[in-house]
Amino acid sequence: MGKGVIPDDHPNALGVIGFMAHDYENFAFDQADLIMGVGYELQEFSPARINPDHDKSIIHLHCFAPDIDAAWQPDISIESDIVDAIDALLAALGPRHVPPNRVEPLIRSLRAHELRKGEEDDSFPLKPQRIVADIRAVLEADDIVLADTGAVKMWMARLYPTQAPLTCLMSNGLSTMAFSLPGAIGAALACPGKRVLSTMGDGSFLMNSQEIETAIRENIPLKVLIWEDGSYGLIKWKMDMELHRHAHVDFTNPDFVAYAHSFGANSYRITSAADLRPTLEKALAEPGVSIMTVAVDYSENMKLIDRLGDLTIAL
């Protein structure tokens, strides 16, 4: 939820936590002796994931008190306007020198390397990292992307460099599927003039795609990018991780291009890696509703888990 509050290009930014495996950012928490939660809501992410042994000092800053949790027992809990509290703390503390450590540059380089490798990957179906990189390349810093729940969310949350608050929207407390297509209609009405892109899996898309008609009728510039893999990809991923096989997660899709076209929308199928970026640019620039679908290679999912596992052992 706070993604972008600290810009990802800030020298102290280490990214977003919340992935189901021990991800890059977790290595920083492993080493920390103090965690300061600013605007952190426990429902978003269990504090046991960042303070498993209950041994870290905790400072909690929000405009309401946190719930009781064995892994999140603040030594100091500040209930205040967040900005004013931070201003007051900065004024009281003054500039501080933070000694360099080994892990932070490593985390930043691992993340940058993963994204850069994705950017350069021309394989088809597209690697998720490539899709994330191309969305970032096309959207301006203030444009809004909604990342629906599912494997899409994992890749977008982990890798999408976000420079401003409320520009990468996810459902986190409840983590519901299918919010992002109608959510993009709400976002376009809330922020007229901003470009809004909704990105989701094929599972989420077919749960609320009827609202394409609403957007067309109400003349709302709905832009959708579907990551198509013919399955409930996140659940398949979880099954593969924990049960080493999967079942009852695969489905077939209608022809999304013909489907969107039948509503009167502009619709596009990405047929090569090189095709994604110009198609996104065209869709975002043209008036009306545009629906794009791209085949995604989710064999990357388990490769990521293996890489992170190796990293955990190495560190």
């Binding site: 409320l166 919010f179 297509l181 109608p182 709400g186 009405l189 809330a190 009827q210």
Partner: peptide
């Protein structure tokens, strides 16, 4: 904004509220 499913109407209001 007339929607085609109430669930979608709630999600629209949800994101509208979050952004404004």
């Amino acid at each position: 904004i007339l929607t085609r499913h109430e669930q979608a109407a709630a999600f629209m209001a949800d994101m509208y509220g979050r952004l404004t």
